[in-house]
């Protein structure tokens, strides 16, 4: 059995934009999941790799489809690297379920619900917990 690619969703009101051409500047002695930083129209934005944070496997960002999703929480902007940005999807309440608490607690801090999208399952990020999970204060 081949594991399916994992899809995540993030609330649109936390998304600033999506960019696909970028140049990441690597930082000295960064945390494992911090790839580096980009210059987004004069503003330095940190780029995180949640795949590295969750599974320890770094995301390949050399392909054409690799994108950066710029997220803003309060006045903080950061970017997460994704393999592909599928699009904007509306999920109803009946499509949302809470994840079992007995699952990975570390993962559960930032992924509390999932959406059923046809046959697929989309994991929903809890963006409010995401900054804490990433230790953003320290990283910033």
């Amino acid at each position: 059995m081949v594991p399916m690619r994992r899809s995540h969703s993030i609330s649109l009101n936390r998304v600033s934009e999506v960019i696909h051409k970028f140049e990441v500047i690597q930082l000295p002695s960064p945390p494992p999941f911090l790839i580096g930083a980009i210059n987004l129209r004069g503003q330095i934005v940190s780029v995180f790799d949640l795949s590295k944070a969750f599974s320890g496997k770094a995301t390949e960002y050399k392909s054409l489809a690799t994108c950066l999703v710029i997220i803003h929480i309060n006045q903080t902007k950061f970017a997460i690297i994704v393999d592909r940005a599928s699009g904007v999807t509306h999920f109803g309440d009946n499509q949302c379920e809470k994840i079992d608490e007995n699952l990975c607690k570390k993962y559960q801090e930032v992924v509390t619900h999932l959406h059923k999208h046809g046959k697929d399952i989309v994991l929903k990020f809890n963006t409010d917990k995401l900054l804490d999970f990433l230790g953003y204060q320290n990283a910033a």
Partner: peptide, 13 residues
């Protein structure tokens, strides 16, 4: 697509 995505983001906003 990215532009439409961003447009969708802006439209949602």
């Amino acid at each position: 697509k990215i532009l439409s995505l961003n447009a969708s983001v802006e439209a949602e906003r």
